[in-house]
Design a protein around this nucleic acid. Structure first.
Ligand code: ZN
Ligand code: ZN
Ligand code: ZN
Ligand code: ZN
Lengths: 167, 167
DNA sequence: AACCGTAGTATTATAGTATAACATACTGGT
DNA sequence: ACCAGTATGTTATACTATAATACTACGGTT
């Protein structure tokens, strides 16, 4: 029950960043790909915030140690990170999210909080099956899917609730 | 089996456009909303092509009887048409599609052909249920969902097939 | 160590998508 | 005729994404 949902309010975030970077390191290693400074910086930024960031947010938000990267550089890093499953693009936000469970899943749905922008990345086997069946029935050759739910995360929902049970 | 999938190669497209406009007319009437020239033109264009169009395609593609509408006008018309369920935004295309079954469904998935851009709009009750369950389990307050599959429509798939069964 | 091909980076320019702000015009009711 | 509300026309600007090209770093070969 702890594996699939929103990040806990106070999890060990340092450890969580560190694990993400370590996994990335290993993933690149095993594919003979280079985990360069650009790629590293982008992934670090995404891991740090636990929510989707647009490319221009990534560019501005930060010091980058003096450098001032152009969009193309960020896009390239993201393209690479996405290609090896370390980052996902959230279409309904035009933004990118560090994968919260790299290597484990193949089909997930993103639950996007419209208020605080937190995203839960949840395995969606049932939906995957439903889509596969649909594809079979229609003769559609499935390449990929975009599954995003929009609404309010538990925290924001209870904060907004008409009859608040939170005080 | 004919109700849910890709538009038939040669359906009566005039009738299909006409029905779409008639439904729109009625929908506006029943809500006391105005079906103005702008809104009418945008919907007509979308109905005519049976695939998603970007805003700037909508702007350029056409004569508009002398007028040369600015983006804002198109966006306003689309916003209205979407609000009453006559048009859907396809996030993975940054484009808009006339609803193929206005008034009938509440939760659909779009099967987007990456080659010819045709889109099938298919009821997705199973997926809707899966998402609702997920929301329950996670405490997520669901507002809307983005469900898009990307791949090849039957025609394009068979045209590309390695061992073509089509000649 | 010098050489070379590949992959990644840096930089500039440009294309494509979306919204803000504000003035004007149309519509329906008084 | 007047008013309030809604939709349009117009200009400007913000945001998102890619193309094109020159340069640099890395790893393997000689
Ligand atoms: Zn964390
Ligand atoms: Zn939230
Ligand atoms: Zn048709
Ligand atoms: Zn197709």
């Amino acid at each position: 029950m702890d594996q699939s949902f929103f990040p806990e309010r106070q999890h060990d975030h340092e450890a969580c960043i560190h694990a993400g970077m370590a996994h990335a390191e290993a993933a690149c290693e095993s594919r003979n790909e280079r985990f360069t400074a650009n790629r590293r910086s982008v992934l670090e930024l995404l891991l740090a915030v636990h929510r989707p960031l647009g490319v221009y947010e990534l560019m501005k938000q930060f010091d980058w140690k003096g450098r001032r990267p152009a969009p193309a550089q960020i896009y390239r890093a993201l393209e690479f990170l996405e290609s090896i499953g370390l980052v996902h693009r959230i279409e309904s936000c035009n933004a990118y999210l560090a994968c919260s469970r790299p290597g484990r899943h193949h089909c997930t749905i993103f639950l996007v909080c419209e208020q605080c922008k937190t995203v839960a990345e949840v395995e969606a086997k049932r939906m995957q099956d439903a889509i596969a069946d649909l594809a079979d029935q229609t003769g559609f050759e499935l390449h990929s899917q975009v599954l995003e739910a929009r609404g309010l995360c538990p925290d924001c929902a209870s904060a907004t609730a008409p009859d608040g049970s939170d005080h």
